[in-house]
Design a protein around this nucleic acid. Structure first.
Length: 878
DNA sequence: GCGGACTGCTTACCT
DNA sequence: ACAGGTAAGCAGTCCGCG
């Protein structure tokens, strides 16, 4: 197994120590004969095993290009298609008619030839013969002026990007090992360990079909992820105006510094000499980072040349917002300085920047993927601004250097320190925890079959779409058009509770208010994916065309039937991913001895989690290409069915359910045997797993749904939905809430309730009086709320945070989507002020009393006392 | 002209 | 552009009130 070096600790130590030695190099002194860098990799006929980084279309060659990286010898290779593969689309018009009725197709300058292909049309459950129209280039199929796609009334598979089409047809899996052998691209076999084989046999031993299907998946989870050499880049640009970010499209100002941090240990800053700045011994002392190599350049042109040379030495370039700033700026600046396009190893695409040799990963885009944020990182940086500083401090507890003055006014040392820290943080985000992020990206690429550059820039629906398309081609299935699915399957049959939603969702059981000791939480393990697998759900099996299947309705209150004599594709794929996660890789991540392998298995199960968790939702999302409301609606209906069946049975058995949400049931002090009986019964009747998820020593429930506090055996707290925990709640309220919680969690058993109430009373009174006396500082009263759209788009109403934001705008401070507005409630005209503009005497105290009240009531309701009681005789309104 | 009842919008949360 | 359900606060509207 290829092991990555444990680099991060070394880097970090170096980073935080004071400098021992600063090495400086003058560009002129160093200048050897100028080394020409190459913008193309070698194209040998034989190579060692390599990782597929990406597949693209090379316009000049007019061929698909596979970029490979050999991690052992640190070399990038290009492999061009030599199988004569061409871009194509499918139509149901037969070739004769095509010639007579659509002559423009044959006459099209990009037209190549026609083939006939047999495809299985899963939607209509029949085999069809389609006409495959091949073109000389992708744009002739679609996207160009007057493309073949536009000439025909209806086409299939014509909107698939060519490089992805190529991946499906060749069965190439990005992130996997391939080698070039006599000019052919061949996969490198992966060894499957005996223990994994055993797990799989136990699971599917009597199911030939699944046994065969899973064979294609195991290598993706077992092939090791090598260390992928990479370079993080961050630039600083001269700006004459303070606080104004230079426009990367115009690139009008000088690039004054470029920081480079490589996973191979490179720590270098390229600095432009400026006549107005001096560099002396005193400044050297200010350089905080040891071992940072500094290269000075007389001209920006030379600086960029050096940068380009370095870029070409790495298979992977990492940036934070490089698509929209750093690489775009460098590219446009280089053009401006007289570089020719062929001399720049950066390529500008419509919405992204790529590099000539390898791939560019923009971490800003990656961390902004919702599924990554919530599932892969557990929402650790949710609600914060998606800046390098915020993400680094949430994930690795490292910050950017504070910027004390405008970039243009920094001296060399300040500039170098500041610049290098950013590049280092960017690199470090891919290095920490034994290269967790990089490994995750590789696993996600393998499962989705998307190249590294695509997987890091697209949302989870695109991943699942690509995975499903790949599976269609693998089987010789026709990829259905979205409208066709809707036409055949129709819209949803149920009505959602929430206005504007498309179908009915989950059940939330009304909670019993109060404090309860010894509460068992049982829960269905990944309920929705289990349902998809168990009931064979897929767009082609739900409401299938076969009349004889119409009686197979899994839920009586929904008219949808499901096919029983075909295996649903979605059910198969999601079923495998779920089974592999639950029964194989979660187990391996717990039991494996070797720490590296253990961590790797944990990455595998985490990558699987992302796909599994999103698998149901996409089918209910209109933008998804396999959008299928009856499928999504069957999933939630079966979820409701599972929940209500379990609830009824629990009551029947004499158990006491207190609360439940979607896939969980809270049961108060259950008889262990009765609980086991319930679990066994449910598993037998429903055929899906239900387990004890956790046991609370005590649960406090306010009576509101999605709102409770649970105390775990180790004393830690699960606080759900409480206002006192929400991120927009003022710290003042959070503090009081935390104090109250401290008292509650200190409570050993129910008999101590009275004493706790007295403690709570005293504490709350103390804070309340402070608030009244205006002794709470403004920042503790500030409410933090994020803008979800540009200010001018709040047309229907003007919420308070928008009012505050408008006040900021008046002062010339620009705010937009994703920005978090800090404001306080005041007795001024708007009722709010941005915190930095407010004075303590303007505060609307009553509003904060109300806030305190709602927050505390959620706890007090469980104890059966009111806020007013807690405050005692104190009058609420003075 | 004012206030309560109501609906709708917005954000943040839960599963 | 993965889903729906819930809590909460505020904005805005309607209606009654001699």
């Amino acid at each position: 197994m290829v092991r990555s070096e444990d680099l991060e600790h070394r880097d970090l130590d170096q980073f935080e120590e004071e400098e021992e030695e600063v090495r400086l190099r003058e560009w002129e002194e160093e200048e050897e004969e100028s080394v020409e860098f190459v913008l193309r990799a070698e194209t040998p006929s034989n190579t060692p095993p390599c990782i597929v980084l990406t597949v693209t279309y090379d316009g000049k060659a007019g061929k698909a290009l596979v970029k490979l990286y050999d991690p052992v010898n640190d070399k990038v290779y290009f492999w061009y298609d030599n199988t004569g593969h061409r871009p194509y689309l499918l139509t149901d018009i037969d070739p004769k008619d095509l010639v007579t009725k659509f002559p423009r197709v044959i006459q099209h300058k990009g037209f190549s030839h026609i083939e006939l292909v047999r495809k299985y049309d899963a939607l209509n459950d029949r085999w069809v013969t389609m006409t495959k129209i091949c073109a000389k280039d992708p744009l002739s199929i679609g996207g160009g002026r007057e493309s073949i796609r536009d000439i025909l009334p209806k086409t299939w598979e014509s909107k698939i990007k060519y490089h992805l089409c190529y991946i499906y047809d060749r069965g190439i899996i990005p992130g996997m090992y391939y080698r070039i052998e006599d000019g052919k691209l061949v996969p490198v076999p992966v060894e499957i360990p005996e223990n994994v084989r055993e797990f799989v046999l136990k699971l599917y031993g009597n199911d030939e079909y699944m046994l065969k299907e899973v064979e294609d998946w195991l290598p993706l989870f077992q092939a090791p992820v090598p260390h992928l050499k990479r370079l993080a880049i961050d630039i600083e640009v001269f700006t004459p105006k303070e606080n104004k970010i230079p426009n990367p499209k115009e690139a009008n100002y000088e690039i004054i510094s470029v920081a480079l941090a490589g996973s191979d240990g490179l720590r270098r800053v390229l600095v432009l000499k400026r006549p107005d700045l001096e560099f002396d011994e005193k400044q050297l002392e200010k350089l905080r980072d040891d071992n940072v190599e500094i290269m000075f350049f007389d001209s920006e042109y030379e600086l960029l040349r050096e940068l380009f040379k370095t870029i070409c030495q790495y298979p992977i370039i990492v940036t934070f917002n490089g698509d929209n700033f750093d690489l775009l700026y460098i590219y446009n600046r280089a053009l401006k300085l007289g570089f020719k396009k062929e001399e720049i190893p950066i390529i500008a695409k419509r919405d992204e920047m790529t590099v000539a040799l390898g791939v560019h990963i923009d971490l800003y885009k990656f961390f902004n993927i919702r599924a990554i944020e919530t599932y892969a990182f557990g929402g650790k940086y949710r609600g914060t601004e998606k800046t390098l500083d915020a993400i680094a401090s949430a994930l690795v507890k490292l910050r950017k250097l504070p910027r004390e003055k405008p970039i243009a006014e920094m001296d060399y040392a300040e500039l170098i320190n500041y610049n290098f820290r950013d590049a280092f943080l960017t690199l470090y985000l891919t290095m920490y925890d034994n290269e967790l992020v990089m490994k995750l990206i590789v696993l996600l690429a393998r499962i989705s079959k998307l190249p590294f550059d695509d997987i890091t820039r697209s949302q989870v629906s695109a991943w699942i779409k690509n995975m499903m398309y790949f599976e269609h081609r693998k089987r010789g299935w026709l990829i259905p058009e979205k409208e066709d699915i809707i036409n055949v399957k129709g819209e949803a049959a149920t009505k959602a509770i929430i206005k504007g939603k498309k179908y009915l969702g989950a059940i939330v059981v009304d909670p019993v208010p109060g404090i309860f000791p010894n509460v068992y939480v049982i829960d269905f393990a990944s309920l929705y994916p289990s349902i998809i697998k168990r009931w064979n759900l897929s767009y082609e099996t739900v409401k299938c065309p076969d009349e004889s299947q119409k009686n197979n309705k899994p839920v009586p209150d929904l008219p949808h039937w499901v096919c029983t004599n075909r295996r649903g594709l979605t059910a198969t794929i999601i079923g495998i991913l779920r089974d592999m996660r639950v029964y194989v890789y979660k187990k391996l991540a717990k039991t494996t001895q070797s720490p590296e392998l253990k961590q790797f298995y944990d990455v595998v199960q985490n990558a699987l989690k992302v796909f599994i968790n999103a698998s149901y939702g996409v089918f209910g999302a209109e933008a998804f290409q396999l959008y299928c409301p009856p499928l999504a609606e069957l999933v939630t209906a079966l979820g409701r069915y599972a929940m209500s069946l379990t609830l009824t049975k629990a009551i029947e058995l004499g158990l006491t359910p207190l609360y439940g949400d979607t896939d969980s049931l809270f049961i108060w002090s259950p008889d262990e045997n009765k609980l086991k009986e319930l679990i066994n019964w449910v598993e037998e009747v429903l055929g899906i797993d239900i387990d004890v998820d956790k046991v609370y020593k005590m649960v406090a429930m306010s009576g509101r749904k999605k709102n409770y506090i649970g105390i775990l055996p180790d004393g830690s707290l699960d606080i759900k939905g409480m206002v006192g925990k929400k991120r927009n709640t003022p710290d003042f309220v959070k503090d009081v809430f935390a104090e109250v919680l401290k008292i509650i969690s200190g409570m050993q058993n129910i008999t101590e309730v009275d004493k706790s109430i007295e403690d709570i009373r005293r504490k709350v009174k103390e804070y309340y009086d402070k608030l009244r006396r205006r002794e709470i500082p403004l920042n503790k009263l500030s409410i933090k709320m994020s803008l979800s759209k540009p200010l001018e788009q709040y047309t229907k109403t003007k919420p308070q945070h928008v009012k505050a934001a408008l006040q900021l705008k008046q002062l010339g401070i620009n705010v937009g989507p994703g920005d978090i507005i800090h404001f306080v409630k005041t007795r001024t005209k708007d009722g709010v002020k941005p915190v930095q503009l407010a004075r303590i005497d303007e505060i609307d105290v009553e509003k904060y009393v109300e806030y305190l009240k709602t927050s505390l009531e959620q706890v007090l309701d469980a104890l059966g006392i009111s806020f007013e009681e807690v405050l005692g005789s104190t009058k609420l309104f003075l």
